[in-house]
């Protein structure tokens, strides 16, 4: 039982990260109906940015208070990653809007390949380890065969996730910007006729998705302690699975989907087989898409004859 609770905590931690990435997928798909294939690699780039900034802050500038360093790194990583995402949207996706349906998808795959290899070329192919952070643990139970513990970094991850989700949720639900996004989701042409700057709204959507991916990237770095140029693809696909599972286009759905995928993955690895944990994630993707394409919180689609 203790083992199960421990896995539960680990699963929620991992799921938070997936959920944060999944929001980027779900928002972009919602507004322009495109699977932003490069989003996983944006996440990977953000982890590298966070890593480099962290090194710069601690070794060059000499900030020793970890909490301050973490907050600065988080904010800067969000900024720089958003800039990447904005430029990519501007150069690789916007010219293809309204074009052939496959063109943006191929362009996004190209971007994904480019980003992974760009990072490989400029940062090298090896794993980049960072010193462990927030590693102290709190024992939740004691005396049993197995202590259920939660590390500070797991608490940090969950707290940051909850805080940022609340902020973004507020933006999407309550501000004029969020209203513009939802209007573009419904009907882009009509939104433009009503004076909404559609291009700008789409750009902001990409930026918001990337900012959350940057949060995920920073947290991923803290959780796993290293990052590699190839680390974008698999978390990307899993996060997309999470978005689909939650119901594509729904932000709370993406979070719930992320948590579920994280839990399933951790529990599968713990109780079934760690070799096949990715198979489990992909199988879920297939099963959900086939039998429940509207996801948990999505709207069903009716075929129009």
């Amino acid at each position: 039982m203790e083992f199960f609770f421990q896995q539960l905590i680990n699963g929620v931690t991992l799921g938070s990260i997936y959920g944060l990435i999944a929001i980027g997928y779900t928002m972009v798909f919602g507004i322009i109906g495109m699977v932003n294939f490069a989003h996983g690699d944006i996440f990977m780039v953000s982890a590298f940015i966070a890593l480099l900034l962290f090194l710069a802050l601690t070794t060059v500038i000499g900030i020793t208070w970890l909490v301050l360093a973490f907050i600065i790194v988080l904010l800067l990583a969000m900024f720089f990653t958003s800039l990447w995402s904005w430029v990519i949207e501007r150069l690789a996706y916007r010219p293809l809007r309204g074009s052939f349906r496959l063109a943006p998808l191929i362009s996004a795959i190209g971007m994904s390949i480019f980003l992974a290899n760009f990072v490989q070329v400029v940062q090298g192919p090896r794993n980049k380890p960072i010193p462990p952070m927030f590693n102290e643990t709190i024992a939740l139970t004691s005396g049993g065969l197995f202590d259920v513990t939660v590390a500070w970094k797991q608490i940090v991850i969950m707290v940051v996730t909850v805080v940022l989700l609340t902020i973004f949720w507020y933006i999407v639900q309550k501000t004029p910007l969020g209203r513009a996004q939802r209007a573009c989701e419904q009907d882009r042409k009509m939104a433009a006729l009503l004076g909404i700057d559609v291009d700008l709204t789409i750009s902001i959507t990409f930026i918001m998705g990337a900012a959350l991916a940057a949060v995920a990237g920073t947290l991923y770095l803290i959780q796993f302690g290293n990052v590699n140029f190839a680390d974008g693809f698999i978390p990307g696909v899993k996060a997309f699975t999470a978005a689909v599972l939650g119901g594509i286009g729904s932000i709370p759905g993406a979070v719930i989907g992320g948590l579920l995928i994280g839990l399933i993955e951790v529990l599968w690895a713990a109780y079934v087989s760690s070799d096949y944990k990715n198979v489990a994630a992909f199988t879920i993707l297939i099963v959900v898409l086939i039998f429940m394409p509207q996801g948990l919180l999505g709207k069903p689609e009716i075929e129009k004859v």
Binding site: L91, A92, P95, L96, S99, F100, A103, P104, I106, S107, I109, G110, M111, S112, I113, F114, L115, A116, N117, F118, Q120, V121, P125
Partner: peptide, 21 residues
């Protein structure tokens, strides 16, 4: 050789913009 895939990825983007069909 490591620039191969870098250029390949970029070429995919450029070609899509140049000739989407």
């Amino acid at each position: 050789v490591q620039y191969r895939m870098l250029i390949f990825g970029l070429a995919m983007v450029v070609m899509m913009i140049w000739r989407p069909r």
